[in-house]
Write a protein that binds this DNA or RNA. Structure first.
Lengths: 348, 348
DNA sequence: CTGAAAGCGCTTACAG
DNA sequence: CTGAAAGCGCTTACAG
C-alpha cells in the first residue's frame, strides 16, 4: 500500500443509517434511541444500543452540532504576559484552568483551551465560528490589551465570564480578597504582631491587590494599628518585586514584626531577601502571603498563606457562564478563602 | 420581552449565502474566496472579503468540518492521579500543556483539553466522535489504568502521541533523561564530589526515573565512582518521598558529599530534611534535581537542576501527532535538556 | 474564473 | 411508538 493511502480514513465511517439497518429500524429511531428520547420503547432502544455497540458507532458531533446549533463546548482563554514563557505562568492560573476543565466536564461540556498574549494571537470569536457556546477568560491582570479585546467581545454580545480582568463592567468571579486579607492580618495581630507592613504593587489595574490592601488596612485600623504599605514595582516579575520590597523595608530602618504580602510570590521573594539579610522568619518577623501556590509549601520556612477554594472557583466560573448562556441570572461572584497557618507565622 | 426569549440566538445567523448576496456573487464563490482558493480573481476576493467584514460573517466550523471530515482540533488529555487535587498536579505537566496548546495554535489547530483520572471519567474516543483529529496524552506515569485505556485506543487505530506513558509500544516523546542525569552527575563530580548518592523511586512504571538513574550510574562508573541508590517510596507524594529518603540517607551513617535527586520535588523534600538536620547545602553536600520546576528557583538555597526544553517538547508532541495523522513518519523522540547551575551546587 | 448542485450525518417537526 | 423528509451551512467535484 502506497504511503499516501494511509492519509485516507482506515474505514468508511459508520453512520446512524448503518446502525438503523443493523437494528432493523429507521434512522430517526436510532437518533432518538441513542439520545435517550423517552418516547422510544425500551425494546427498541435495546436493539439500537446493541447494534451501535456492535458496529462501534459514535455520533458525529459536527453533524449533531450543525443541526442543533449548540456546541457542548466552552472556550477557556488563558491570558499571558506577552512573550512570557509558559513555564513562568502563575501556578494559580494553571490550577484554576484544571478546575474549570473539571467542572465543565462534570456538566457535560468539552473545553477548548488557548493561551493568548500578543495582539497577533488574540482570538475569541468562538461563538461566531460555532466552536463554543461561551468563553471563560482567566489569567494575568497585567495584559491590558488582551482584556480590552475580550471586553469588546463581551460588549458585542459574547457569552463570557472572567477571572482576573481589570474591568468591572463584565461578568466576573473573584476570590474574597478583602475577607482573606482581613483573615491574614488578623492572624498576625492575634499572634502578637503590632508593626505589620503590607508589601504589594499598587498598579492601577491590579484590582485584586488593591482589595487585599484594603482588607489589610481595615483590619489594622480595627485593631488601632497603623497601616504601612511598602510599594513594589509592578512592572517586574513578582519574586523580584518581593525581593526589592523587602530590601526597601529593611532600608527604611523602621522596625517591623510582621509582613503581609499581597501574593505568595511576593512573599517568597521577600523571604529570600530576609534570609540573606539575617532576618529570621518567624522569630524576628512573621510573614504571610496570599494564593496558596505550591512553592509556598516548599519554602523554608513553609509559608503561611490565604487560599481561595480552587475547585469552587472553577465551578462558579462554569456555572455563571452556563447561566448566562441559558439566559438565567447567577449572583455568586466571590470565592471563599481559607487561612493556612504554617511555620512562617508560628509562635514558638 | 419574556426571559425565555433570551435563550434564543440574539440574531439570525449570517451565512455564506448572505455574504454572496451582499457581494453579488454565488455562495460557492464566497466559500472559495474566503478559503483562499487561488482560482478566485483578486477583484472578486476583495468584494467578498469586504461583504463578509460588513456582515460580520464567520464560517460555521461545524458545517465546514462535517463537509471536509477534518476537525482542525487536537485533543489533549492530562492524566492525573485518581482524586488528586488539580492544584497538586506536577507543575511540569501544566507547563507542558501550555506549550502544547501554543504549538498547536501556531500550526492552526485548536486544542480540546481534559483532565482525566478515575475509570468513570476516562474518555478518549475523540476521533470517532469527530471532535479531534488525534490525541496527545500527558501526565503522571502512575495512573496505570488510564495509560492502559489510552494504549488500547491507540492499538485500535487512534492517532496518539504521549508523554509519560509507562508503555513503550506507543508513539512517545521523552526528555533526554539519560543524558540529563549524566550532565547532573558530571557537574557534581567536576565540582569535587566523590560520594554521590542518588535518591529516587524505582517504581516499576517510573521509566523516566529509571533512565535517570541509569545515566547517573553510567557517569559514576566512568569516573571510577560507586553508584549508590537510596530508594524512596514511590507510593507517597514526591516531597514526602524526598524527605524520607534524606532521612534514610542520614540514618545510614555513610558519609556523602553530593546528592542527585531524580526529580526536583524529591530534591526539595530532601532539602527541607537537610535543613532540619543541620546539613548545609552546598557546603556539606551539594544537591541537584531534575525537571526545573518553578519552586526550585524559590528554594533556599536555589536548587541546581536539569531542565528539558518545554517549548521543544510541546512542539515535538504536536509535530509527531500531525505527522501520524498525515501518514508521514517522524523520528524525533528525545527532548534536549540543559543544566541549570544554582546555589545548591556552587563551590565557594 | 464562476455557478448550480450534491452531499457531509445528524435532529426534529410532522404525519400516522 | 415509529418513519419519511427537511434542513442545519458548509466544500467541492462538475460544467461552462
Amino acid at each position: 500500500m502506497p504511503i499516501a493511502d494511509r492519509t485516507r480514513p482506515r474505514t468508511v465511517r459508520v453512520t446512524s443509517f448503518d446502525v438503523a439497518a443493523e437494528a432493523g429500524v429507521s434512522q430517526s429511531t436510532v437518533s432518538r434511541a441513542l439520545a435517550g428520547d423517552p418516547v422510544v420503547s425500551e425494546a427498541t432502544r435495546r436493539r439500537v444500543t446493541e447494534a451501535a455497540r456492535k458496529l462501534n458507532y459514535s455520533v458525529d458531533e459536527n453533524a449533531a452540532r450543525l443541526r442543533t446549533g449548540r456546541t457542548g463546548t466552552l472556550a477557556v482563554v488563558v491570558i499571558c504576559r506577552p512573550d512570557e514563557d509558559r513555564k513562568d505562568l502563575n501556578p494559580f492560573t494553571y490550577a484554576l484552568l484544571g478546575t474549570i476543565c473539571a467542572a465543565a466536564s462534570t456538566r457535560g461540556y468539552d473545553t477548548l483551551v488557548s493561551f493568548q498574549d500578543g495582539p497577533e494571537n488574540l482570538s475569541g470569536r468562538y461563538e461566531e465560528q460555532r466552536k463554543a457556546d461561551g468563553t471563560i477568560v482567566i489569567g494575568t491582570t497585567q495584559n491590558e490589551l488582551a482584556w480590552r479585546y475580550f471586553r469588546d467581545l463581551a460588549q458585542a454580545g459574547a457569552h463570557q465570564v472572567c477571572w482576573g480582568s481589570p474591568y468591572d463592567d463584565l461578568e466576573w468571579i473573584r476570590a474574597d480578597n478583602h475577607g482573606g486579607a482581613r483573615l491574614a492580618t488578623g492572624h498576625l495581630i492575634e499572634r502578637g504582631c503590632r508593626r505589620i507592613a503590607c508589601i504589594g504593587s499598587a498598579g492601577p489595574l491590579q484590582r485584586q491587590f488593591q482589595e487585599r490592601y484594603d482588607g489589610y488596612a481595615e483590619r489594622m485600623a480595627e485593631a488601632g494599628l497603623e497601616p504601612w504599605l511598602v510599594e513594589s514595582d509592578y512592572g517586574l516579575p513578582r519574586e523580584e518585586q518581593g525581593r526589592l520590597a523587602a530590601r526597601a523595608l529593611l532600608a527604611s530602618g523602621r522596625p517591623f514584626d510582621g509582613v503581609f504580602a499581597v501574593c505568595d510570590e511576593l512573599a517568597l521573594g521577600a523571604l529570600q531577601e530576609f534570609a540573606e539579610a539575617g532576618v529570621r522568619v518567624p522569630q524576628d518577623a512573621a510573614l504571610i502571603g496570599f494564593d496558596g501556590i505550591r512553592a509556598s509549601t516548599l519554602a523554608m520556612p513553609p509559608l503561611s498563606t490565604v487560599q481561595a477554594d480552587f475547585a469552587a472557583a472553577g465551578a462558579m466560573l462554569v456555572d455563571k457562564l452556563l447561566a448566562g448562556i441559558a439566559g438565567e441570572s447567577h449572583q455568586q461572584r466571590r470565592v471563599p478563602v481559607q487561612l493556612l497557618v504554617r511555620e512562617s507565622t508560628r509562635r514558638d
